[in-house]
Amino acid sequence: MTPLFRILFRVNMLCLALSGVGHMPIFKRYYIADIPGLAWLAKFHITLTLHYLTAALFLALVAWIVTTRWLSAPDDRLSPVAQVKTGLYLAIIASGALLVIKNLKGIYMPPHGITLIDLVHLMGAFALGLTALAARIKRWPWITPVH
């Protein structure tokens, strides 16, 4: 992963997280949308659009990483924390895909199913954020060499 790719991935993740949290009506309530330049965080259709666009870039970047790793068969393996993060990414991607499908016209999903998907998406994102923070502080690597 090149430094440019890493920066692009992290900036995109920040935008994805911000627009995702913006789905909840809290930025206006807690004055964050009052900060000059952040009023858009309280506008649901803007945060939804940004979330979709950044999600598209995120999926393309993840697909790039996975495909590259899969096809180049490296002599290493994912560290335990990377395996946890990968599991969380999968849960977030799967629940996100279902939410995108739900938002299409003419789609029926059972109400309890939608609530469950919403919670998996939200809690998965929070758990991923905490795991990434812990990995950063503890300097846990993504990959470890095979002995």
């Binding site: 259709h45 939804l48 659009t49 979709y52 666009l53 999600a55 598209a56 870039l57 999926l59 393309a60 970047l61 993840v62 697909a63 790039w64 990483i65 996975v66 495909t67 590259t68 096809l71 895909a97 995108v100 499908i101 938002n103 299409l104 016209k105």
Partner: peptide, 23 residues
Amino acid sequence: MAMAENVGKALLLAPIAGMAAAA
């Protein structure tokens, strides 16, 4: 909901673009 209806379908194709580019 026009954005979600139109971009939503395209969004599901984004991973394919990433895979194809990497491959």
